Simulated assay, not measured.
Amino acid sequence: MKLAAFALCTAALGAAIPVAAMAQTSVNIADQGPVVTLNVTESVEAAPDVVNVGTGVETRAPTAKQAMADNAQQMTALIAALSKAGIAKKDIQTSGVRLNAQFDYSPRNPDGTQAPPKFIGYEASNQLSVTLRDVKKVGDLLDRMVEAGATTISGPNFAIDDPAPLLVQARGAALKSARAQADFYAQAAGYRSARLLSISESNSGGNPPMPMMVRSFKADAAASTPIEPGQVSASVTLTVQYALEK
């Protein structure tokens, strides 16, 4: 009887234990392979098909009103010359108007000390940004500017009007280069493959370096100005991440 009671108690105790408490759960988490981050830049070059030139007029006079009036007269003549040269109105844009008082800081007192600056008048400046869509005519355009009264010239700044096709080529080359590098690192480090995780892009749409400022005057315009357009490039930089997998 006692044996039967013990067996019954054991059975009852077993029945009281929840089934879940007796189960065994095993979770396996795959090891995360290293992540390779690559910064790849590729460029595609082409002949420029558009050029930007800065030009303008500076005038000086004893009064601000006279300086501005003289400047307006010369600038009107310059704009007319550009229009006559075939430059569309949309491609001529004012980039800055400036009026400054001018002082001479060189005078000195009899004892050698610095004398107060001497007022000498006003300087007015009006600057234009001109887009030329015939690269072969850049030299001729510069000469016409000077002949029309331009006293400052900056540029030329060569570019590609629509860099999108070049960017597509550069983008494809950059991604191909990144893939090759990722595969190399995977094999060199003993991994089976490289899996693409992310791509981010920055690009330069064929914008050349900042142009150098050149000052020109009528007396310097006897010879035709030679201009060499060379090549400009469109660049794409990709930041690409690959996970190396066993």
Rank of each mutant, 00 (worst) to 15 (best):
V57Q: 00
T59S: 06
R60D: 12
A61D: 10
A61C: 14
A61L: 03
T63W: 05
T63Q: 12
K65I: 04
A67L: 09
A67I: 11
M68P: 01
D70Y: 08
N71M: 05
Q73T: 12
Q73G: 08
Q73E: 15
Q73N: 07
Q74I: 01
T76A: 12
L78V: 04
L78K: 01
A80C: 02
A81C: 10
L82W: 02
K84H: 08
K84R: 08
A85Q: 15
A85E: 11
G86K: 00
K90G: 03
K90R: 03
D91H: 03
I92H: 11
T94I: 15
T94W: 06
V97R: 10
R98T: 14
R98K: 14
R98H: 13
L99V: 14
L99I: 05
A101R: 06
A101T: 11
Q102K: 13
F103A: 05
F103S: 01
D104I: 02
R108T: 14
R108S: 10
R108D: 07
P110M: 12
D111M: 10
Q114N: 09
Q114R: 09
P116H: 03
K118L: 06
I120A: 06
G121L: 03
Y122A: 14
S125K: 14
Q127A: 11
L128E: 06
L128M: 08
T131S: 13
R133T: 04
D134Y: 03
K137P: 01
V138S: 02
V138G: 03
G139L: 11
L141I: 12
L141H: 01
L142N: 00
R144V: 03
